[in-house]
Amino acid sequence: MKASAGGYARASDLRHALDLLGQAGDAGRVLVGGQSLIAAMNMRLSTGDMLVDISRISGLAGVTQQDGRLRIGALTRHADLGGDPLVGRHAPLLAQAVGHIAHAAIRNRGTIGGALAHADPAAEFPACVLALDATMHLEGPDGARDVAVGDFFIDVFETAIAEGEILTAISLPVAEPAEVQILKEVARRSGDYALAGLCLVRRAAGVRLSALGVGSVPVLAQGAMAALDAGDIDAAVTALRAELDPQSDTQASGGYRKHIAGVLLRRIWDEIGGTA
């Protein structure tokens, strides 16, 4: 299990990184923490990659608050995110998620940008940012552009990031005074990918509910959200199960995952007091 990489280059700044990606064409791969990419390379699921290491680019890590939004740099490591006071106040959902992501040594190198760009539908962060209604900030050869999270996740391991582009940050609204954010999931073992999980964010405008591990992308459960806004948990559970079509694999069937999503929704609802 030895990786067969095409080449490696360390980018000194964003411009350099974009140039490198431009040169590499479709072999180009952005390398940051490498916690998914290097595993895939070792297993030769990915070979011949031209690796553009952006992990040393300054200014792409860290959390800031400005103009009523929280901005999280793509290079922010899971471990740092979990302990960040701004995240704790405005995006506790992400801090909760960190505790579920793999194990300490992985969280010491994995980054939120890497996790989002990898777009594993069973991972926590994609579902979290969907529930948080985040905006994804991209840089490309032609400049910067923003993508609404609803347009970001396209398929398994596939996002709106175009060839030659880099995800540089995400931003999300700061928390409202009475905002509720909660993540619940069921996993076989600590740190395993969840069999199913839910992220719920309740703001004045209504509830946002996303599901992980139950489809090819994180799912925004709009039917369930409407029912929850109406205060009808039974209808919400029915709606949620109807709008999910989870895959079956060696860990669990789609039917089990769908069932669990409903169980988790009831538990979350009970925990947050049960009314819209």
């Binding site: 069921v186 076989r188 860990q251 669990a252 069937s253 789609g254 039917g255 089990y256 069932h259």
Partner: peptide, 15 residues
Amino acid sequence: FTPERILRALGRIED
């Protein structure tokens, strides 16, 4: 005894 096998034994899964 996976979570799924236990729930199926309990008849809790609908499909």
